[in-house]
């Protein structure tokens, strides 16, 4: 064994080195475009973002004129003023993620497991899941605003059935914002869970049944753990964009208790031209998401996803 191994090594050592070096060059060529793309459109902008977050106004300058500095106080000021919006963003994103999971998991389960083998039905259901994407994000959200409007049938029906107090409404409430987030990001939850469940070997479910596990127990001990990679991917794909979203909050929210951090960044950037505050809030949001996601992924034991 050791002789053959040694032989193999020496043979490989003599003959394989030039190809290996060639392979390394090939790797670089293959990685090149991606690396250049990342450096140009991620590393450089993030660097600029960090730099901008420390700028100070030009003394006596016009609106939106700043100069380079290391003014860390920008972060303190931004957080002191906007921490409620930041916390609310994560809270809303969390609620939307949970709602999307509760709604999306059964959808994915039916499509992947119940419709298994019926390719046409599966395809049709998947198209239906993705169908909202055929319309623009903003139009969809506006449509929601119309659907939930005070005079529209949802609210009138709920009033009629006394599901909603007579003076209560759905739009311009946190409920509307979280609903909008849930609706808009639901496909991002369904698709990864579907992919995970589709890979699930149905024979494992039979093995579970064979080993005295009732369907419910089989789901809890076999299906659910094996779909975890999809659940983790889905929750991340919903949580991250939801935390940074502002379209839903600005269209479906009000101006008191639904402000999300994305709205603040947008307003600071485009309306006030307060680039340092917008940049420092962006950095805080990015770091907070990284930390939360890191902790979550570590906890759920699916590091290989990262």
């Amino acid at each position: 064994m050791s002789i053959t191994a040694a032989l193999g090594d020496s043979v490989a050592g003599v003959a394989a080195e030039p190809p290996r070096r060639r392979a390394r060059r090939a790797h670089l060529v293959l990685l090149g475009p991606g690396l250049i793309y990342l450096v140009l459109f991620f590393v450089v902008p993030v660097g600029a973002l960090l730099a901008t977050s420390l700028y100070v106004p030009v003394p006596g300058g016009d609106v939106g004129e700043y100069q380079p500095a290391f003014h860390w106080q920008n972060y303190v000021d931004a957080l002191a003023q906007f921490w409620p919006a930041l916390l609310r963003s994560f809270w809303f994103a969390f609620l939307a993620t949970v709602a999307a999971l509760v709604i999306g998991y059964p959808m994915a389960y039916v499509i992947a497991v119940r419709a298994r083998g019926r390719k046409l039905l599966q395809g049709l259901l998947l198209v239906l899941v993705v169908a909202p994407f055929f319309t623009s994000f903003i139009l969809r959200t506006i449509a929601w605003k119309q659907i939930l409007a005070d005079d529209a049938f949802v609210v009138t029906a709920m009033h009629f059935l006394h599901l909603l107090p007579a003076d209560a409404r759905l739009t311009a409430t946190p409920f509307a914002v979280v609903s909008g987030l849930t609706y808009n990001f639901l496909p991002f939850m369904v698709l990864p869970i579907f992919a995970a469940l589709e890979r699930l070997d149905p024979r494992l479910l039979e093995a579970g049944a064979d080993l005295y596990a009732s369907p419910v127990t089989t789901f809890r001990t076999v299906t659910w753990p094996l779909s975890m990679p999809g659940v983790v991917a889905g929750t991340l794909l919903v949580f991250i964009p939801a935390a940074g979203d502002y379209v839903n909050a600005s269209l479906l929210g009000n101006n008191t208790n639904t402000t999300m951090i994305g709205q603040v960044i947008d307003a600071r950037f485009f309306k006030v031209l307060d680039y340092p505050t917008a940049a420092s809030l962006s950095v805080v949001l990015m770091v907070a998401i990284l930390v939360l996601v890191g902790a979550y992924v570590r906890r759920s034991g699916t590091e290989d996803l990262l």
């Binding site: 039979e206 064979d210 080993l211 076999v222 753990p225 094996l226 975890m228």
Partner: peptide, 20 residues
């Protein structure tokens, strides 16, 4: 009766071991 209710166990052709 259903599979989980029977005092029968199976060694599957593919083994069907739980990978997790």
């Amino acid at each position: 009766t259903r599979a989980h209710q029977r005092p029968v166990n199976t060694v599957f052709q593919s083994y069907a071991l739980f990978p997790h």
